[in-house]
Design a binder for these strands. Sequence first.
DNA 1: CATATTCGTAACCGTTTGGTTACGGTATTG
DNA 2: CAATACCGTAACCAAACGGTTACGAATATG
Lengths: 109, 109
Amino acid sequence: MVAARRKRREAVFRAIADPTRREILGLLRGRRCTVGEIASNFSTSRPAISKHLRLLRSVGLVVTRRNGTARICELNARPLRAVSVWLQDYEVFWRESLGRLRHYVEEGS
Amino acid sequence: MVAARRKRREAVFRAIADPTRREILGLLRGRRCTVGEIASNFSTSRPAISKHLRLLRSVGLVVTRRNGTARICELNARPLRAVSVWLQDYEVFWRESLGRLRHYVEEGS
DNA sequence: CATATTCGTAACCGTTTGGTTACGGTATTG
DNA sequence: CAATACCGTAACCAAACGGTTACGAATATG
């Protein structure tokens, strides 16, 4: 089961790599949405959004419930903890790099 | 140049999506390495690692310096701040989501 | 000068990805 | 029951991705 867990962690990184999927997560941060509501925020087709949602569900970032013909989607941010944990090992490094860059020209954020 | 900055932020998410590249970053967290040293840690060919390094350099996560025929690679974790900032908006959600989602789950895959 | 070491790049290839259109399945509604 | 609304999936396609081999440039080294 360790391998499966790692595979799922892998998948979370790939899930958030796509800008459309990150935007979907951002929408669901504000409120629950049906699939159609989510799709109406994008210029891409509804089936494309459906595929993104399937992937997001597969990694647990989105949870759904049926309500009539509609399917209501809700954010589950817990899998993002794995990313946060991974990032923690680097935090000290970007603090250090800030110090080293102090006397150089501002790069801009 | 706001668009260029966003594009670069975009690229950071894709850069860390690949497990080999994350492993490279992990190696460089410990010490500086030449390209060959990095490649010796993987079963893939050196040119493949070279391509990963080119991508990592393009997003600023790796900086290099030439030393004879060798090229020394060093970690620059600063671009990861963008990921950290993005994650912060979700932190509150994974803290409170546990109990709220318990009765909501339909399916995970 | 000749040779070896280190590394980047070009060319190519199979797989994955993200998009589309077409279609069907399942409630809700008149 | 017939019609409609909502949504998932299959089939297909162009582009991106990650890998390989082959080659060449640049710098030691004998």
